[in-house]
Structure formats: structure tokens, C-alpha cells
Design a protein around this nucleic acid. Sequence first.
DNA 1: GATGAATGAGGATTCATTCAT
DNA 2: AATGAATGAATCCTCATTCAT
Lengths: 209, 209, 209, 209
Amino acid sequence: MASRSNAAATVEEPRSTRDVILDAAERSFAERGFAGVSVREIATEAGLKNQASLYHHFKNKRALYEAVLSRGITPLISVVVESGTNAQPGSDETFLDHMVTYLAEHPHLPRLIQRAGLDDSKYLRSALTRLLRPFYTEGLNVLAAAGGPWQPEDLPHLAAGLYHLIFGYFANSGLLEAVLQEDPRSPEAIARQRRFLKKALNLLLGAQR
Amino acid sequence: MASRSNAAATVEEPRSTRDVILDAAERSFAERGFAGVSVREIATEAGLKNQASLYHHFKNKRALYEAVLSRGITPLISVVVESGTNAQPGSDETFLDHMVTYLAEHPHLPRLIQRAGLDDSKYLRSALTRLLRPFYTEGLNVLAAAGGPWQPEDLPHLAAGLYHLIFGYFANSGLLEAVLQEDPRSPEAIARQRRFLKKALNLLLGAQR
Amino acid sequence: MASRSNAAATVEEPRSTRDVILDAAERSFAERGFAGVSVREIATEAGLKNQASLYHHFKNKRALYEAVLSRGITPLISVVVESGTNAQPGSDETFLDHMVTYLAEHPHLPRLIQRAGLDDSKYLRSALTRLLRPFYTEGLNVLAAAGGPWQPEDLPHLAAGLYHLIFGYFANSGLLEAVLQEDPRSPEAIARQRRFLKKALNLLLGAQR
Amino acid sequence: MASRSNAAATVEEPRSTRDVILDAAERSFAERGFAGVSVREIATEAGLKNQASLYHHFKNKRALYEAVLSRGITPLISVVVESGTNAQPGSDETFLDHMVTYLAEHPHLPRLIQRAGLDDSKYLRSALTRLLRPFYTEGLNVLAAAGGPWQPEDLPHLAAGLYHLIFGYFANSGLLEAVLQEDPRSPEAIARQRRFLKKALNLLLGAQR
DNA sequence: GATGAATGAGGATTCATTCAT
DNA sequence: AATGAATGAATCCTCATTCAT
């Protein structure tokens, strides 16, 4: 609803310093990872004259990182939960549509999540796990209801597969651009990816349901 | 069992210092990324008493990183190329089998690749792209031949999707373990994933069946 | 029992913020020295939510430190002066008794003074000197009157020696505890130290006995 | 014997970097305490172009501090032990002479020890305690043999008193200078202090023995 | 081929202090 | 009288790299 990073914000609400820092950090962490970003960089990008100011809002670099993760993932989970709630016929499509739209609008998010998942510095991942668990649980329910040619023991693999299918495209858009020689974030590419995902999910989850 | 050095080493030859360094670096880079690892760490883990020794074998940290990437990806490409060469009926399965086996046996590799793809420091990615392009080209050919309900314009998305489906499981095994509460690298889990991938690819490329 | 605020406070009056800060600062400075304590620490220990509040009461860290020193040393000088005033026969014992009692009741004070004496940042020591000079002058008078086997030129050394004898025990109680393996601030230890000092002063100033 | 900081060093032995750092650190720590000195200062005073070099020789600031303490105290203990060994009649005087001479020649040492004793950051003091314990044990033996009007239970207090008497003068020479208005480290003052200490010890330990 | 030493640049974090509220 | 926010300077320490041995 309230899109965060839209250039065209209808109301001119002045972002709090804390949010400005979070914005800068989200961008930086997504692009270069936790270890690849210096606090100084984030502070500068946030318009602070000094790194010290940042520590007024976040206890340390890790706390900032976790705040970024949390703020990024929470609305994502809402998308899943809400789509799951009104699970009418065709809700899959709605879910996918919402998801693709949201991910396309928040380009940093998938990379951020991908990175956090790769880092096995247990501290960082615990936060991510805590946030993703409901996501996964919800997903399993939907899949169990969806039917298809799958055994119960296949479902976790199926869930993981769908996750990679959906998130991978956006998380690796940089790499894809280099390999495919085309911008995977252009509206046309996104539309194609949307159609591809629908078709793919239809095939995987058993056509007509 | 699975000897890491591809150059037919049945005998227990002592690894050269260079290879020992590459081993240590591969592990470290896969676990914590380029920026998250210090040269000192790698030197120490490689059993060197001094970081300076490392610079005798690699010009600098980046050169080491690229050497790691290159050494890791090259045999992977061979797997693809060889599977593509003898494209008999059912070759998809053979390809998949080889791929899953190789990835399962080289647990650092998928994470390494995933990380390299995320880092958009152009230097790092260019190496990866150069290495992955043949992979992609080969893949497109196979897909075009496989048929299925896909338009030509869908094929890049399909290729990317398959890539994420196959690599995602291994690259994110750490995260999966935390979410699924089960070791995704256990032989049983790998076997299930293998079956899942076959079924999934059949559904997606289905066509001739 | 022993009320710390010298301005005759028999009633349990709530300490002013200024005094609360001074208390916290006295403790901290005595334990870790001027450079070893941060303004934030003192503010926190004083129950302030913010370091800024502290600057409402003291111009800066040094002013706070000098206020602590001054508040601590002033009553100590009174002890000396009063003991010297009623210099009856046996007044030495009275002086010693008062001194030991006061030092034992104000454990931070000797350490604070010791530290201030060690710091040769001229600013800090000038305050201390200003405060200790009367102490020393008074002491010289007493010693000159006491007689003993001392030449006039010995008197400064004797005065310094007595000072170290009396203050050293309390200032270094922490170290003594570690070396002696016993609490030098226990009532028994204090009583012993009191007797020791009397005997020692008798031997040193001996004379009339 | 081999005086460390003598201006007139007969042989021109080039000090190792490690020793140069220790020298600089000893001076600085003695003057301003552990917390009052920055690693940068020490590095600069040691002639290093960079603080980083210092970390090649010492793990961190604390390790450097402990090395300084250890190097400073060890020869001091030797003085005690050697004086105790040849405990002939009049050995007390020899001990005192050696001690005064050594302390006068190493002006930083007493302050260093005094400071370390005040700091109750347990880490710092443990080192000091470990080093001073033998000193204390030896002292007790000497005192027990010396006789005088002391009960056994007085001996620890007597030992501490002598320690304060002897070390206090040198440790607090800065403060003494300000109060006495005379340089307590001038040869004349030292000679007077030496005589004062002999007389005082004679009085305290029972005259003729 | 390996190592000890050195170093400029930068890492995260804390310092004392000020200002507007 | 108290506090939240901000900031320049400094803190300790690690970075990648080079050089002489």
C-alpha cells in the first residue's frame, strides 16, 4: 500500500533520521553485503555528517542490519499471509501477482534476503530464520491444499523450489542481466517473468486447480 | 573418495601450497564472502605462518578469489558440456543426475557462485559471467530441443528458473536447514531432492511424455 | 550511620542531583582514574538518562573532577586542623584516631588522592596541591613540636613518610587484599592497622616516651 | 648492573624495536596511566611511523602494559631476593641502599607500580600481584628475623608500611615537589631520603639489630 | 618458497561536548 | 532541570600489501 521508495510520494512526509538510515543501509547491504559495507558509508549515504550520529539510533552495525532485515521482511510476510487468508479459487494467481509486484517494487529486498541466507554467521541468520518460518509454514499449508502429483515428503522440497523460483529471478537480476544481455527489471521482462511463473506454477501444482 | 583435484589423482599426492591455499580460500569465501574474509585468515587456515607467503602464489586478494571461482566452476561446466554432447533420449535425467551429484559433493561451490552473482562489483562478476555464459548457451539449446509449452521468448526465463531450482537448494542449504529443521545435505534429503527435481523438470519440460 | 554530607544532615534528606552526580563520579574516579571514566558512565550511574544533563551542573569533565576532589579533601583538612588546634598531650593519638576513622569511612578518598597525586597533568595536580598545602604546613608544625631524633632538614621527609604510612594502607587496600589474602578493610584489620600506626608513630616520633 | 635508561651507555647496542616500544610505553604509562595513554602516542614516541607496527610485537594494549609491568618489576624482585640471600648483619642497610639506588635510577617504576596497584580492573592487577607476591614473602621473612617490638600479627602491617615508606617517596615525587617546593629527585634530596629511611627503619625495626 | 617486520588506510565504536526543545 | 539528537575527534585494532632476508 504505502510504497516506501516511490519517487512519486503523494504526501511530503519527512522521513525520520532513523528511517533515512535504514533506507541507506538497506540499499548498501543489499548491494555489497554486511561485511562489504562500512558504517561510514551508510552514514554518509544517509546524509549524516558523522558516523557517530548513527550510533544514536542503532546500538551497532549488527543491530542496524537486523533492523533492516526485519523492516524488509515483515511486509513481505504480510503479502503471504493475506493471500493465504482469502484462499479462494484462483488465489494462487493473486498470491503470485502480489508477490511479483512487491518484489519488483522493492528490488533490494530479494538480494538482501539471499545474502542473509548465505551468511552462516549464526547471529545474522537466526534473525532471518525467525522471520521466514511463518512464511514457510503458510506456504506448506497452501501447497498441501493445492494437490498436484506430490507426496507429503516432497512438499518441503517443493516449497523450497518455489521459493527459489520466485525469489531467484529478482535476487540474481544483476547476474541475469550480465548473462542474458537484457535488463531483467524492465517492465516487459517483469511481465514475461510473471507469465512464466504462472505457467510454471500451474505445471508444478497440477494444472487446473 | 571423491578426489577434489580433477586432474586424475588416484594416488594420495601431497597438495601443493597453492592448492592448499585455494582450498582454504574456497571454504572461507563460500562461508563469508569476499569482503568477509581476510587474507590473514586464509593464510592461517592454509597453515602458513605468514600472510606474506600467500602473495607469493597470488598477486592479491582478488586474484585469489578469481582463481577460486575459476577452479570451482570449470569442472562444473564440463559436466554440462559432456551431458549436452551425448544428448540421447533421457539425457535430461543424466544431466540432472550428474549435476546433483557434483553439487552435493562440492558443497562450497553453489554458495560461492551464488555470492559471486550477488556481488555487483563489476570485476568479480565479469569473471563469473565469462564462466557461466557457455553454461547458459548450452542450456538454451537443450531447452529449445526439449519442446514443452514454452514460447521462444519464455526460454531465458525458463533457463533462469531451472538454474535457480537446481542451484538454490544447494546454495541455500544452510538457510534451509534452519527453516526445515532437517539437514538438507543428508543422503536421504539429497535423494529426495533428486527425485523432486526430476519430477519438476518433467512437469516443466513435460512435452514428450 | 556516618552521613557523608558534612553539612549536618541528621534527617534523611533526598540528595540533590548535583550531589548524586558527585557521588557517582567520586566512586568512578577513585576506581578507574580521570582518564578511565567516561562522562556517560558517570551520568548513567547517577541515574541520568542523558549525559547532557550532567553539563547542566558542571562545566565539563575536569570541573566535575575538581569538584569531587574538593568535596572529598575539604573535610579531611578539617580533621587535621581540628586535631592540631586542641594540641594537648597525647593529641597525636587523637589525630591519628580521627584520621584512621575518617579514611576507613571514606574508602574512595585515599585512592582518589593517590591518583590525583600521580597524574602530572598540571591542571589536575594544582587543585590537589592547593588543597594539600595547609595539610602539610600544619603537619610540619606538629612534627617540629614533637621533637624526636630528627634534624630540621629531615622534617619534610618525615612528613612525607608519615603521609605515605597513613594514606598508603587505605589507598592501596585493593592491592594489599590481593597480596595479603585478607580484607584490609575489615574492622579487625583496621583496628590492627590503627594499633600499628600508633606504635610506629611512637617509635618514629618517640622522644618523650 | 646493566642500567637500562642511563644516558651514558658504554656500549652502543641498538635496542630492538620491541624494547624501544617497551621503553616508550613504560614512560607513558607511568606518567598518565593505562587509560590515559593512547596506543598511537606510544607508537609515535617509539619512533614508529604507524600504530599498526606496534601490534606486530604486542597482541593489544593490555598485553603491552603487562609486558611493561613485568619487565619493570622483575629486576626489582631480584634486588630483594639478592639482598635477602646474603643476610649478614647490616644486610638491612645494604638492602635499603640497593633499593633506593634502584628506584632513584628508574623513576618511572614506582609510579608504574603504584598505578597498577590502584587499578582494580582485575586483569591488570592480577599480573602485578603475581609479581609482587614473592617480594612480600621475602619481606616477611626478613622482618620476622629482624625482631623489634612487633607481634606476628603486626608483621603484614609492618611490611605494608615499609613498602609505602620506601616506594611512596619515589612514586609521589611529582606531588611532593609541588608541596615541598623542592625537587625530591635531586641527588641531595635522595641522599637525605636515604638517611631518613635508614633512621626510620632503625627506629621501627628496633634500633641496634 | 617462506617469513618477520613495517606501514598507510580504513575498520567499528566511543569520546566529550553542544544545541534545540 | 532535563533530554534527544548531533557531531568532530579520537579510541583500539585490522586491513591488504610490500620489502628485505
